[in-house]
Design a protein around this nucleic acid. Sequence first.
DNA 1: GTTCTAGAAC
DNA 2: GTTCTAGAAC
Length: 613
Amino acid sequence: MDDAFVIVPPLSYRPPNANDFPESSSWRDALFNILSLIETTNDSSRLPIVLFKTDKYVCMYDKFPKAKYHCLLMPRRQRGEETIFNTVETLNDVTPYHSDELREFHILGKNIARRLQESIQNTSDSVQITIKLGYHAIPSLKPLHLHIVSSDLDSSYITRRNHVQSFTSSSFFVTPDALENHLESAFVSLHPPMSLFVDVRMQRAQSILESAPMKCTKCDRVALNVPDWKRHNQYCTAMLKQTRSKGSLNSLLGWCSREYYGVAASRNPNFVKEINHIGFSIFLPQRDLGYYSWGSKHVPYKPLRGIESEDEILRCINVSDKPARLKPIIGQQVEFQSPTQAVIKNTFPYGQIMAAGLYVASMRGIDINATDFCFGGSVLGMLATRNSSGTFIASFIPGTRCILVVNREAYSENLASSGFQFERYATGKDMNDTVDTTTVNHLHTMRVGAKNVLFITEVHAVDETDSPIEIMASDPVIWGLNILLQMISSGSSRICYGQSDGQAIKNISLQSLSSVAQYFLQQQPCADIQTFEQNILSGMRDIAAQLVDGRLYRVNFSLKNIELVPEKDPIQCAVLPRDSVATRLIHSIMKDSAGAFERKRRLSEVDQNKGEC
DNA sequence: GTTCTAGAAC
DNA sequence: GTTCTAGAAC
């Protein structure tokens, strides 16, 4: 281990004021917000909430210190870099594969602890206080954070039983040594270690918080209640017990075997398996951010730049909606109906609604600043085939370095068409209903190569586990690679399709993503997945390299190479509302999400009341 | 994670 | 009457 990475200078502990900490949309995102503040602040070593940082890690003061000295050590979020820590949110995401990184992290933590110990050497506290390191077996906050905390636990912020237990229980407070020993045990006794994850015994850990006796850390006296524990703790004069750490194992840590595909795997394991089964290696699903619906309420068309306020967008979003469940229709035959014609243009508010997806993604904890790209549903296909059957526009999302790429082609759709009829049939709706224009969208992130990509795509249905299913009234073979990449963009591991002869849909079947791929590759023996992957990665590189300013660019092709050309009609081809509106929509989440969220709630109540009257 | 508060425990 | 806990809201 190269100690140079983790050398810590002498530290002086100067806890900040509570209002030095950034406001957070939700307490769950508090640490993420701090981490992105650190990345976006020019000289973040001057931030009062930071005690010490390196290129990879940051040690910040705890906002509610449970002892005279209390900090949190975390890996920094590194844009575009492959650090495994980026996907570790709790101890349950840790694998033996993380051993080396964790060891380095722990050495840094111990060195910080040593410096803190030095800094209190000459104070009256020096005799009684030692600095301890540990993770909470069940943390309240993500991502992974190591507590560096002094043994006194003398703090007005200790108010509840679980505060006491979480820092005094020798098993709930998981020391770095205990975690390292646990990981080490996988290499000794279990095989194969790479598919194993740490598994915290949740029930036992919870019962420690709730019902284990609260003991004094010095004399083991059992307290009657929290105030009793605090009173005794302040005046107990017994010597602090020396805790053994080397070689210790933690009784709350076990193992759980599952394949490693990233964080999203637990939500939609089939999708991840299918992608790997096809042979794609550049896609690593990360976070599944769920669904939201867009109901435009039959208002007139409007140019995106004509949107006056974010409320015009907020009122159309329903964050608790999800796609309808696919009905058991396999093998059935469906006659088409003759519903009322309903032609709609993909113009706002019936299209061009990426801003809504960005809003919901921010609300659900995506840091747009830490995201490299945001793609609509057909972008992967365009990059892979280098075929611009569409008008693709690339531009920075205002106020960020995140590149939004969407198909801005203007087209019309008829809700009476057979495709829409089949979608409604497959989800148990009235085939003749051409009035409801609500669409449901899925949000998820993937690593694509070394980049973080947010996907905002429409989905038609979900299966019994609420995973997306593509629905299509034609044989997917016709669509070839595009449908494959559209499914990947929407996070769909299956497609429900039937063959249409104009009168009816026949042979409705359900196929997996990999069988669609297999069929496509059979039809086109010259096609190979690796070439498509290279096209996608080099396309993303080209776009990032050529996007030099805040203007709108059209994605053109010359000899299959991507060329960004400044869009001649940036007003007409806008992909987001004007900057002031878009910025408030996306960034208000960080600073003022409570306000935006409350406003959204009030608006939806108003709309509901209208409906009821 | 905290804050707030009803009502149980004393 | 006061002290303390636990659950909901944020």
